[in-house]
Design a protein around this nucleic acid. Sequence first.
DNA 1: TGGCATATGGATATATTATGTAAAAAGCTG
DNA 2: CAGCTTTTTACATAATATATCCATATGCCA
Lengths: 227, 227
Amino acid sequence: MKKPTILYVEDEVLMAKIVSDSLQSRGYEVVTENDGANGLKRFKAVNPDVCLLDIMLPHKDGFTIADEIRAVNSTVPIIFLSAKSEVTDVVMGFKSGANDYIRKPYSMEELIVRIENVLKLPDEVTSVPSEWQIGQYTFNTQRQTLLHPLSERKLSYRESELLKILYQNNNNIVERRDILNLLWGSDSFFNSRNLDVYITKLRTYLKLDPLLEIITIKGIGYRFVTP
Amino acid sequence: MKKPTILYVEDEVLMAKIVSDSLQSRGYEVVTENDGANGLKRFKAVNPDVCLLDIMLPHKDGFTIADEIRAVNSTVPIIFLSAKSEVTDVVMGFKSGANDYIRKPYSMEELIVRIENVLKLPDEVTSVPSEWQIGQYTFNTQRQTLLHPLSERKLSYRESELLKILYQNNNNIVERRDILNLLWGSDSFFNSRNLDVYITKLRTYLKLDPLLEIITIKGIGYRFVTP
DNA sequence: TGGCATATGGATATATTATGTAAAAAGCTG
DNA sequence: CAGCTTTTTACATAATATATCCATATGCCA
């Protein structure tokens, strides 16, 4: 199967670099454009399968570019990237079959999920399985369900994301800062207490399997021990 | 086991010196390069187990070097070092199996955790057992548990790390200096008294087996005598 | 060699800080 | 508003750092 091509319009070069690398490493072809004014031109030249548009751009904002693109192509999926504060009803209004938006800060995981969604590709493309076996539990990352022979639980978003992070690094130390940055976008004092709360939750959810343990490394982070 | 080799690309000489010394004292072979432009050349010459790349470099930035390295080696773990201001929320999402990042200012403790994380993945899977038999005790390094027919105890991180160090050198002398550097990152006066406290703790934990003994070699260090 | 000064480490007490936990408050979403 | 998730708060507990006091080894010098 041909690699899906992504047009990515983003002015912050460093950010663009990172996201682009990450997407490429997952098998996408990425074309980065950092001047909004060239957005349409680039679109015509590349004819991508998905567009990723930053909303706040110096010369021309994401919505305008989207309009221009829509004028020549009414179906290509467009995903808007927006800072939390920029998410207004306007953005919401753009959400439709072919459009989506994602708020910063977002994890790569999230972004990938959106892209897959709009492309309507099966999960296998990125080889990130949606069902993980964690001890006696089955964790479905898509449905955010944690299944055990004796119980079934629906996880909230934060619970699910935290479990993902821990399990992706299972048997290794994950630092608090990293979790905080990934999940809350910063590691301030208040967020910090927040993490404790969710760790407690996960611990109680995972109690049914005595071999699963989230160990505290005080001052550093956690280690999720799994068989 | 061969010392893991680290390629460390950093332009600030003083910083490079400090970090490099510290890593060396913890058993790593460190090759420092302070010109980004020589990064790839150095990589080919050294063939390191891990790369530590500063992002902001005068001639060639860390990402570019990473690309060059990836072109010739797709698996070697790369850890990016970045100033706080350079880290957007998305940088965090960039974490993947073979890549990681760490924000300055970072503690040695943290850096070590990262390096061990990226290095350990292959090890853990293969042959490094997490359960050690120490006299009548079973010490699980992952779960930080110390089991004895008559008792079970959960160790804290420091307790566990200290026991690891002692047992890895059992029946040999371990110098105080080395322990202090490994566990506390330096061997100042205060840390020194700290070590005494943990030695005392371990001694009481290990009392149930009379054949286990942590012997003081005054002025030098300890010898953990085991059958 | 004996006696003293000094350095070093042992044990324990106390202080500090990080984290655990529960529960209330605030936000969301329909 | 009702039911959920998330954040915030408050208080409890555990891990770690520091301080204190004591014991003993070591070295020094008469």
